[in-house]
């Protein structure tokens, strides 16, 4: 910004500012090449990419798994609308970002989570995660994860109860694979959890993260439509393989395949870490960001008090984004040192 101001002379700047304030000039952040994509089109594409995961959640946990998802969406959209009225600004509900935040939050809740608390989570996600920073684009942290962190700290029992929502006879009502690994009997763990179960999703867990296959379908949609780039997903997956593999070679932990397929690793990599606003905007920075999340996640899973660490890892790396952007800023062509 400072470089530009030296080029633009005062008079021009005055005209430009006037144009901005009158709404005649469209100001967009980089990248500037525009190819017809609007915020709402991106948001709804991500929503479609999430549908397989939502479907898998309903299939494995029963139709009542929809209740917390709907609660979170109601809370998020409602909060977006109210904040818009308070600020007396244009209605931002139709752009779909609040809906998507609600859906993402709903999918990372346990299937039997109280709908009222899910509404509260949605309100916190949009209110504390986004609105207090100035709205979409100004938030530091991923709003859906802010909502989940609030719920995790507020209702720790409800957020770790994987058994209450079973409405199908053969539906899953057991501790999560990661929970079994950290707190359970090793024999039970090895017998029950197979790779195919993890892949299909027939294991306990949050609504959207149970089926790895459904998340991979969603990832394919995001990559084919070019809504998300493979860099963050790829570096996070590679980081997971490397760090989990290294620890398992040292005799700590179950190894890369289990780490990537269980818990929120894939869901976080595909839908949470790739959020435009809260991830770095330099190429090298995105590799660092993904690998950093993977490292923190594996460290929390191996040595922390909690069985799962994807949420806190992404939030921590969100906080590091400005620093990553600064350090990995591309060198200006022709500049020395």
């Amino acid at each position: 910004m400072a470089d530009e101001s030296s080029v633009v002379d005062g008079a021009k700047k005055g005209v430009a500012l006037k144009a901005v304030s009158e709404g005649n000039l469209e100001l967009v952040t980089s990248p500037h090449s525009h190819f017809g994509w609007t915020t709402s089109r991106i948001m709804w594409t991500v929503t479609i990419a999430l549908l397989p995961s939502l479907g898998a959640g309903i299939f494995y946990f029963g139709p009542l798994a929809l209740v917390p998802v709907i609660g979170a969406i109601v809370g998020a959209v409602g909060c977006e609308w109210v904040v818009g009225r308070i600020n007396k600004k244009a209605d931002t509900v139709p752009d779909g970002s609040a809906f998507l935040t609600g859906l993402l939050l709903g999918l990372i809740l346990p299937p039997g989570f109280s709908p009222l608390h899910a509404v509260l989570g949605g309100v916190v996600a949009v209110g504390l995660g986004k609105a207090v920073f100035g709205g979409l684009g100004d938030n530091i942290f991923n709003p859906a994860l802010v909502g989940r962190a609030f719920l995790q700290a507020s209702f720790p029992a409800g957020m770790t109860d994987w058994s209450t929502a079973v409405t199908r006879v053969d539906a899953v009502s057991q501790a999560t694979p990661l929970g079994l690994f950290k707190f359970g009997e090793p024999s039970q763990f090895l017998g029950d959890i197979t790779t195919s179960k993890l892949l299909l999703g027939n294991v306990g867990g949050c609504i959207g993260e149970t089926s790895s296959l459904a998340i991979i379908v969603g990832a394919a949609i995001l990559l084919v439509t070019r809504v998300a780039h493979w860099r963050i997903m790829g570096s996070m997956l590679l980081g997971g393989v490397v760090f989990s593999g290294a620890f398992s070679l040292l005799g700590v932990g179950p190894g890369p395949l289990f780490d990537i397929l269980s818990g929120g690793f894939l869901f976080g990599a595909v839908f949470m870490a790739t959020d435009y606003v809260t991830s770095p905007n330099t190429t090298r920075g995105q590799y660092v960001f993904g690998a950093g999340i993977a490292l923190l996640t594996i460290l929390i899973r191996r040595f922390g008090g909690l069985p799962e660490g994807v949420m806190y890892s992404i939030l921590l790396m969100n906080a590091a984004v400005p620093l990553i952007n600064r350090v990995t800023r591309p060198r200006i062509f022709g500049a020395t040192s």
Binding site: A153, F155, P156, G158
Partner: peptide
């Protein structure tokens, strides 16, 4: 009303 435990935590 289920207490919001986060409120009595430092956060």
């Amino acid at each position: 009303f289920e207490p919001w435990i986060v409120m009595i935590l430092p956060a």
